[in-house]
Amino acid sequence: MKKTLLFIILLSFCGVQAQKNIYENKHFDAISKDHKVLAIIPFLANLELKDNITKEKLKELEEKEGYAVQNALETYFLRGKKKKKYAVEFQNIKNTNALLAKNNITFKNIDIHTTKELAKLLNVDGIISGNIDLNVLLSNGVSTSFNFFDYFDGNANYGRIGIKVSDGDSGKLLWKYEKEINKKTGKNTIDLIDGMMKKATRKFPYDKERVKKNKKN
């Protein structure tokens, strides 16, 4: 009984925390009213693995994880696009990455470029970017076997992810969602993005119905 009560309290706490992890610019509607296309760029990844590997190999794996999140987000948004859920289009990530490479922007140096610079180069209205910190290789798949007490000994925690949307013209942060990654999140990157974005759907600001309502007002 005590274990059950403790579990319910923990779930309730996590629910409250999830709400606090979503930020939206109070001027979002005014800033984004003319947005038509967003680009998803590779995420900045930081790995803290227990494996004894070289710095070069670690950088290679971080790049892999960064592109895996970019791909997973595109997959998620394209499914929503088929259901006509969004008021904006999403630039094909193959085109995004090709344009970045053409301008000598790589995973290693993309963080030194501003949102305004990237948006202009990619010819989009806004940029979807973020960071992911992991102690496992999520893109390779991880165990989802779950024990409640894993939360207390640290075995359930895999890291944290932050997704943000920024305006291309001003560079201002428009929306941000942060979430811890654990065994309940999913077995791979696709599961992670699918699960967290479903929870954030009501708060994702480019919802088609919301935009229609704001235009009427």
Rank of each mutant, 00 (worst) to 15 (best):
Ser12Phe: 10
Asn155Leu: 08
Lys57Ile: 07
Pro205Arg: 08
Lys81Pro: 06
Ala72Phe: 05
Lys164Asp: 14
Asn217Ala: 10
Leu173Ser: 10
Cys14Ser: 10
Asp153Val: 05
Lys84Cys: 02
Leu134His: 01
Gln19Asp: 06
Ile128His: 00
Thr4Val: 08
Pro42Met: 08
Lys198Trp: 00
Leu38Asp: 06
Ile40Pro: 03
Asn188Ser: 02
Ile127His: 01
Ser143Glu: 15
Lys20Gln: 09
Asn135Ile: 09
Asp153Tyr: 00
Trp175Asn: 07
Lys120Thr: 12
Asp29Gly: 08
Asp34Val: 13
Ser170Gln: 03
Lys85His: 09
Asn25Arg: 14
Gly168Lys: 03
Glu60Thr: 09
Arg79Pro: 06
Leu121Arg: 08
Lys176Ser: 11
Tyr76Asp: 07
Lys184Asp: 05
Glu48Asp: 12
Leu99Val: 05
Phe43Ser: 01
Leu38Glu: 01
Asn214Arg: 10
Leu173Asp: 08
Leu99Gln: 12
Leu47Tyr: 02
Ala45Gly: 01
Ser143His: 13
Thr96Pro: 02
Ile93Arg: 14
His113Met: 05
Asn131Thr: 14
Lys164Ala: 15
Leu173Glu: 11
Gln19His: 12
Asp133Ile: 04
Ser139Met: 04
Tyr177Leu: 14
Gly130Asn: 04
Glu178Ser: 12
Glu89Asn: 15
Arg160Gly: 10
Tyr177Phe: 15
Arg210Thr: 11
Glu48Cys: 07
Leu6Ser: 15
Asn95Trp: 08
Lys102Glu: 13
Asn95Ile: 11
Asn157Leu: 14
Lys203Ile: 02
Tyr206Ser: 03
Ile8Gln: 11
Asn155Cys: 02
Phe7Ala: 11
Asn95His: 08
Ile40Phe: 00
Thr54Tyr: 06
Lys187Gln: 08
Asn97Ile: 07
Asn131Ser: 10
Lys120Tyr: 05
Gly186Thr: 14
Tyr158His: 03
Lys208Leu: 14
Leu6Asp: 13
Phe146Val: 01
Lys179Arg: 13
Phe13Ile: 15
Phe149Val: 00
Glu178Ile: 07
Phe7Thr: 09
Phe204Lys: 00
Asp133Val: 04
Asn109Gly: 07
Glu60Met: 05
Lys102Gln: 12
Ala18Ser: 09
Phe13Gln: 10
Asp194Pro: 03
Gly168Arg: 00
Leu73Asp: 02
Val211Tyr: 13
Lys199Leu: 15
Glu56Leu: 11
Phe107Asn: 04
Ala98Gln: 13
Cys14Ala: 12
Leu11Gly: 15
Ala18Leu: 06
Glu56Trp: 03
Gln19Val: 06
Thr106Asn: 11
Lys216Val: 13
Ala87Ile: 11
Lys59Asp: 06
Ser129Met: 05
Val88Asp: 06
Asn109Ile: 09
Ile93Phe: 08
Asn140Ala: 08
Val37Ala: 04
Ala39Gln: 07
Val88Leu: 07
Lys20Ser: 09
Arg160Val: 11
Leu61Trp: 01
Gly130Cys: 05
Ile40Met: 03
Val88Ser: 06
Ile41Glu: 03
Leu118Gly: 07
Thr75Glu: 12
Glu117Tyr: 09
His35Ala: 12
Leu137Pro: 03
Ile181Pro: 01
Lys116Val: 15
Lys59Met: 04
His35Trp: 14
Asn214Gln: 12
Ala101Thr: 10
Gly159Glu: 00
Phe146Ala: 04
Ile181Gln: 00
Lys3Val: 10
